[in-house]
Design a protein around this nucleic acid. Structure first.
Lengths: 233, 233
DNA sequence: AAGTGGTCTAGACCACGCG
DNA sequence: GCGTGGTCTAGACCACTTA
């Protein structure tokens, strides 16, 4: 019988984690309910609840009312990616950040874009393309469409000094968004901008941002060839 | 003055979210402390705490003792990726899963591998390469090294029917791991296995898994050309 | 020194979902 | 029906950090 010494939810979490990792509690097996665990560990049930909830959030436990709590058999790893403003991403590596506007034009988008953004096919959108630099070398190329129907004030902005990314974050609220990462082959144009070999494989991020039912912006970012997206378990 | 009707932490969270999104509370501005908010919303402080903690976890608020709580200016988006067992990934799309062992051999790893896994350069490791299929078409190619110093029982396993991924999850505990995503160009060999054009850009996952200080396994997974890693904000 | 968030407690009620 | 997790409450003490 274990007793006392488990007065914080973190220590309870660690103890449960230990029992899972040592296979004292095996994958798929049920563990004691919250009340019993609290009694055994000598703390309040809410402390146990907080600990178990934290482990369930990270996918190591499966909890269901009445059915109880079980050790996950095939833990779906929850890898959390921090998607920061690119300037911060560069600066946090200790590199010097640079920014170059390539193009800024109001024009009719391809139907794939107006479709995804659910804007009228006849509506012009603001297209902004820009290069992000790390230590004066290309770091990422961004191609962005802005829904001027929703963000009319963007028309007054040149985006010559501040990236559209940061300007939007500061001035336009959003409620949700989708992100997709993929690999794409550098076109001649992209390779020229990124100063890499044509046909290079580039990690690519597509991001679509919404404010309730209206799209705010759609952006595609090509990262330089060696770029990695890192996280841990 | 708002009163009552905020009896759940989710409703408090939504109300705070609303005030942030409507810019009633602007980026960078301080918001009331927990006690005051609880009073205004007519609930207990712990309910407010739970709500604000949840928003801080997702990066929308910044909290510091004594300094109080502020609306984040450049919210670092926390995108959570679910890294599931590949079989589940395929099946959850409604596709038929298939598995083919390509190679299974005990051999000396390249120094890059023994270095990353921190095994002796002279130590042989178990190399397993296998193909995951969706509807009989190549979905992902996996190249894996297993630290047989730690997982000796892997030597008894053929991996002919069950993927090393699932076998390891079931039989070998791990404490933590690193994941990196990148884009890579398909070599002739990889392209042949994946039945795609050589020089295709493939989304690639590198994963290194540890049990305390000892490495368990290192795996590289090449996904088929159109593969996307999706999540939302 | 003092204000703020972080947490614990004991007790309570409730919603869900097995059996 | 009823056991389990999910949550709320009121009060308390503490840790951290800034003023």
């Amino acid at each position: 019988m274990t007793s006392a010494a488990f007065q914080t939810w973190q220590s309870v979490r660690d103890e449960v984690l230990r029992r899972i990792q040592t296979r004292e509690w095996k994958p798929g097996a049920a563990i004691p309910n919250e009340a019993d665990l609290a009694l055994e560990l000598g703390c309040a049930r809410s402390t146990v609840n907080r600990a178990l909830r934290s482990l369930a959030d990270s996918g190591l436990l499966e909890r269901r009312r009445k059915a109880g709590t079980r050790v996950a058999t095939q833990p779906v790893a929850k890898a959390t990616l921090d998607i920061a403003v690119i300037r911060h991403e560069v600066e946090s590596r200790g590199d010097k950040y640079g920014y170059q506007l390539i193009e800024r034009v109001l024009k009719l988008p391809p139907v794939a874009v107006s479709g995804a953004m659910q804007t009228a096919a006849s509506a012009e959108l603001l297209f902004v393309s820009a290069l992000h630099l790390a230590n004066d070398k290309p770091y990422a190329l961004e191609e962005r469409w802005i829904n001027t129907g929703l963000v009319a004030t963007a028309l007054d902005e040149t985006f010559g000094a501040i990236s559209a990314n940061e300007w939007l974050l500061e001035h336009v609220p959003y409620t949700h968004g989708d992100i997709a990462f993929s690999a794409s082959v550098a076109s001649a144009e992209v390779a020229r901008r990124m100063e890499c070999a044509p046909q290079s494989a580039l990690l690519t991020m597509d991001r679509l941002t919404w404010n309730h039912d209206a799209s705010v912006t759609k952006v595609r970012v090509y990262f330089r060839p060696d770029h990695q997206l890192r996280t841990n378990l």
